[in-house]
């Protein structure tokens, strides 16, 4: 079937003009993301940071304290026991075959260094960062200097992943609201018949409607990720010593998965809207659309699936496949004949 983008863009612009005049659509577009991206991160992240105790010294024997900047040093075969290592910065150092046992390592940074054949054990490591460095054959380097993540860090990462759910709820919910008003409104005002009488193809009409909902949804999702990232970082950076967000999983979720979600939601709403006649039932059925997003995150939160890059890509692929299915259904549902005969 023919698809002319000038017709599609004409429809998109008309729809946008209508949204601007619709109080309900405007309010939803502004308020929902605003709540999701400001109130929720504060509510979730602040208690965690308050509840988690600052890294303390016990139960270690802290006979020796190490502090200061080590630059251009070679540390080989060094074994450190029962130290509190605080505010140490390693710059351009070579660390080899070193061992840290029973230490508290707090607020340390390693940069431009090479670390090999080393390990940290039985130590509490927090508020540390390592960057622009290589680690070879070293146990638990992670993003943290030579060690495992602190409890606070683990909790924060969990919360941040939960926040991702809210970011993905935006592209699931917004289309339901917009679609219910725009489609059902069109039915009630009977404005579809003259539109269907124009020399546009069914596909052009479908694409126009779809894009008109998709564009603001994706734009708003992206925009609301920014304050969320800033709030999380502002609250957690002083504790962690580094910026938690955006990490690659977040970027992937916001940039790729959110739009895929939006597409799914819009298309399913098109299908639903073509079957119902009032705003409320359209919204109620449309609510089902958020279920996949919620289900996925319950699975990840419970720990059945780890939010790794691979899993996220796999998730994206699944949604993409669902998008294709939804598109097929929408094309089938969005036929002039069907719309006129059904929507009486």
């Amino acid at each position: 079937m023919r698809l002319r983008w000038d017709k599609v863009s004409t429809i998109v612009r008309k729809e946008m003009a209508e949204y601007r005049k619709n109080r309900y659509i405007l309010l939803t577009l502004i308020l929902m993301p605003l709540v999701m991206c400001t109130v929720l991160p504060l509510v979730y992240v602040i208690p965690i940071t308050l509840l988690s105790p600052p890294p303390t010294d016990q139960p270690l024997d802290l006979s020796i304290r190490v502090e200061g900047l080590l630059e251009d040093q070679q540390l080989v075969n060094v074994s450190i026991n029962n130290y509190r290592i605080e505010n140490v910065e390693l710059v351009n150092c070579a660390v080899g075959s070193c061992e840290i046992v029973n230490c508290t390592i707090y607020s340390c940074v390693v940069s431009y260094s090479n670390i090999s054949d080393s390990q940290a054990s039985s130590s509490i490591i927090s508020h540390c960062n390592i960057w622009s460095s290589t680690t070879i054959n070293t146990i638990n380097p992670g993003s943290v200097f030579l060690g495992v993540e602190s409890e606070l860090e683990q909790n924060l990462k969990l919360i941040v992943n939960a926040l991702l759910l809210f970011i993905l709820l935006i592209p699931s919910v917004l289309p339901t609201v917009i679609a219910s008003y725009s489609f059902v409104g069109e039915k009630l005002s009977r404005s579809l018949e003259p539109l269907l009488a124009t020399p546009t193809t069914d596909l052009e009409l479908l694409m126009g409607k779809t894009m008109a909902i998709l564009l603001p949804t994706v734009l708003i999702t992206w925009l609301s990720a920014i304050p969320m990232i800033i709030i999380v970082d502002v609250v957690t950076q002083p504790l962690l010593g580094y910026f938690l967000l955006p990490d690659e999983i977040w970027l992937l979720a916001v940039i790729l998965i959110a739009p895929l979600f939006a597409v799914l939601s819009v298309l399913l709403n098109v299908v639903i809207s073509s079957k119902v006649t009032d705003v409320r039932s359209s919204q109620q059925i449309g609510g089902i659309i958020v279920l996949p997003a919620i289900a996925f995150f319950i699975i990840t939160l419970v720990g059945l699936v780890i939010l790794s890059l691979t899993n996220m890509l796999l998730f994206a692929a699944i949604i993409l496949a669902l998008d294709a299915l939804a598109f097929y259904l929408a094309v089938k549902a969005f036929k002039r004949e069907e719309i006129l005969v059904r929507w009486r």
Binding site: K14, E18, S189, R190, S191, E193
Partner: peptide, 13 residues
């Protein structure tokens, strides 16, 4: 050119 039974205008525009 079709004038349907209901005017079906975009009322907010």
């Amino acid at each position: 050119g079709l004038l349907p039974e209901n005017p079906g205008l975009y009322e907010s525009l």
